[in-house]
Computed example of a mutant assay.
Amino acid sequence: MADSVFIEGLVVETVVGVYDWEREVTQSLVIDLEMAWDNRVPGHSDDVADALDYATVSGRVETCLKALRPKLLERGAEVLAGILQQEFGVTWLRLTIRKPGAVPGAKAVGVHIERGAR
C-alpha cells in the first residue's frame, strides 16, 4: 500500500530550545507529516469516520508540542511519532520539524525522521 495522508506547514507556537532565554518565550515550529493510511475505505464511503482525520491529528500535534516544551527538536519528533503511531494506529510516518530563524543566514534548521514499516 502506498496511500498516505499528509499535513504540510503546520505552525505550532511553543517553548523550545536549550538556552535560558528560549525557555522564557514561545517560538514557531513548522511541522510536515506524512502518514501511511489506506484511503480506499474512506474513498468509497465518503465518511470522515473512516478516514485519518487530519484536523484531529493536527490538533494532537499542537497539543503534544505545547505540553512537551522540548529542549531538542529530536525529543519533540520522537515523542510525537510515538503518540501518532499509538493513538491513531499509523504504521509508518515521515516527520519533519523545522525551527525557522534558529541559525542566522539559514531559512530554517530541523530534524527529519521516519518510523515504522510502510
Rank of each mutant, 00 (worst) to 15 (best):
Q27R: 03
R118V: 11
L10S: 14
V12W: 07
A77K: 00
F6Y: 15
V61K: 06
V18P: 01
R23L: 02
E78H: 04
V15K: 05
M35L: 12
E78Y: 00
F88T: 01
V109S: 15
V41L: 13
A2L: 15
V90L: 09
S58R: 00
G110I: 09
R98W: 07
V103H: 09
Q85S: 12
M35G: 08
Q27H: 03
K66E: 00
A49W: 08
A117F: 08
D20W: 01
L73F: 07
L84R: 08
E8R: 15
K71V: 07
A49R: 12
G101F: 10
P42A: 06
T14R: 01
G89N: 04
E24A: 14
P42T: 04
A108I: 13
Q27G: 05
V11L: 02
V25R: 15
L80P: 09
I113R: 05
V15D: 02
P70S: 06
N39D: 15
K66V: 03
G105E: 13
L33R: 11
T96G: 00
A81K: 10
P100Y: 07
V11R: 14
S45F: 00
R23H: 05
G82L: 07
G105R: 09
E114V: 11
D3A: 14
I97Y: 03
E114H: 10
R69Q: 12
I7D: 15
G105K: 09
V25Q: 08
M35S: 10
D3Q: 14
V90K: 01
E22L: 02
L29E: 08
A102Q: 05
L93S: 06
I7N: 12
A77T: 03
L33S: 11
E74V: 00
T14I: 01
T14Y: 10
E114I: 12
C64F: 02
V103M: 06
T56R: 12
V90I: 15
G101E: 13
L65W: 03
D46F: 09
A108D: 14
M1L: 15
L72H: 07
A51H: 00
D53W: 05
R40Y: 10
I113N: 01
D20A: 13
L84K: 11
V30Q: 05
L29F: 08
P70V: 06
G9E: 12
P104I: 01
V48G: 04
D3P: 13
G89P: 01
V11F: 00
A55R: 08
L84I: 08
V109W: 07
E87L: 08
